[in-house]
Nucleic acid binder design. Structure first.
Ligand SMILES: [Mn+2]
Ligand SMILES: [Mn+2]
Ligand SMILES: [Mn+2]
Ligand SMILES: [Mn+2]
Lengths: 235, 235
DNA sequence: ATTTTTTGTTAGGTCTACCTAACTTTATTA
DNA sequence: TAATAAAGTTAGGTAGACCTAACAAAAAAT
């Protein structure tokens, strides 16, 4: 079994290496920044994880996960997302209240618990933020999605996930009616600074480019599948 | 907030001081034994808890909990028992499978989580082992109960709790049909060594005195109330 | 009332997960 | 290419929660 700290590093590495659009090269400093620790601390832990064959890296080089390390990290992500789903679906938490608690729950050690919970929730494929939940083997479903900031004017998308999980972002999103599964139309975009007019539930809101870069949408007709252009895709 | 270790000590003290039939004087050695640590370790922690005004004790004296310490310990017990109930009621765990996992879950820090869970379970008063679940203020319902070993021959009792939570005990209890809420009749008892014949679900089983001393029963007609003899009590 | 046993304390040490400060390597820029 | 900046490493240190070994106090037994 892994310690809580080890699990946090493995999860962070999965997120930095595999769950990012670009730049999947990860170094000590970036990892440390992500985990709110000092580079020296991250360096210590990397040596320990290397000893245990969970990461592979050489001094001054970039970090990667071994098969075993990736599996372990995925498992933490799986637990995190299942617990978030539980909190929202069963205990009526709001989507901006679950992350902190899930950070704790993700470290509970019991195979039976995780799998029972998965069944109890009817094997959900996505968490309350629209992020894919890895299955028992660490596999995830990847919907073909794009950032709202990349959707052309006049087109609509269905919200599948948000990148920012901060309270301020989630509450702002809530306020203007943006939620997982909801539709958004890009009514206009200012070329000067990317200010975008969104039509949500028949109301218009002018939001920043930054905001749009944190929302993933899919074509409402072909949510899954890699090459969207070959279908009757609305994008 | 308290650390996981601190919480474990506070819970142990509540259990040793308040949840025991007799002998509620507790010392360093006993506490250490209960928690599977060495006396020196328990001593260190007691000093720390005294600093924080959670226990009150003097060198070489007996340990007691302050109001604040008792409140904190009760809260851990509450969480432990709520999670055990959740595991059995919602995730179909058996009553001998829940303790270990609850030992982990009891340390999750979120008032909202505990109270939501309590509501989700419809504010249960007893856990799967028949132990009372403290409410938000740390109050518990105490059924008038006696040990099965003290029930007279010919009388029946309804099982409300078991003292031993070990796998071997629970599985043995299961095997002969003893479960919370079930009825047991004391059909006979050998005065030589206390060997007792129990009638459970119309079958007779001869069990040891030791076994009987780990089962709490109440009169089926007056489960609650302090002075059983004033009612139409079957005992 | 001693002796012996049990119980409790102290001193000093380990291991984990952090830290700061100083240093080295690699990358960037002039 | 040489200077500078950024990234990564090492050494040494702290705090929490545990340990062993030696010792002191209290309780029990003779
Ligand atoms: Mn989260
Ligand atoms: Mn999430
Ligand atoms: Mn338990
Ligand atoms: Mn219990």
């Amino acid at each position: 079994m892994f310690s809580q700290a080890e699990e946090n590093y493995l999860k962070a590495l999965v997120q930095l290496i595999h769950f990012r659009d670009q730049g999947n090269e990860v170094g000590t400093n970036e990892l440390a920044l992500y985990l709110n620790v000092k580079p020296a601390t991250a360096n210590d832990m990397l040596k320990k994880l290397r000893e245990k064959s969970l990461v592979s890296y050489v001094k001054y080089g970039k970090i990667s996960l071994t098969v075993e390390g990736q599996k372990a990290g995925m498992d933490v992500v799986r637990k995190h997302r299942l617990w978030e789903t539980f909190l929202v679906e069963k205990l009526d938490f709001a989507w901006d209240e679950v992350h902190e608690v899930a950070e704790q729950l993700e470290h509970i050690k019991s195979k039976k618990l995780v799998n029972s919970l998965d069944d109890f929730l009817q094997n959900p494929k996505f968490d309350p933020h629209g992020d894919a939940i890895p299955d028992r083997e660490g596999r995830i479903l990847i919907p073909y999605q794009r950032l709202l900031s990349e959707v052309s004017i006049g087109k609509s998308g269905k919200v599948v996930s948000v990148k920012d999980n901060s309270n301020s972002f989630l509450q702002y999103a809530d306020k203007i009616g943006v939620r997982i599964g909801g539709m958004i139309e890009v009514a206009g975009r200012e070329s000067y600074d990317g200010q975008t007019t969104l039509r949500v539930e028949n109301k218009d809101h002018t939001v920043s480019d930054k905001f749009c870069m944190n929302i993933h949408v899919v074509c409402p007709t072909c949510k899954l599948g890699k090459d969207c252009s070959k279908n009757d895709c609305s994008f």
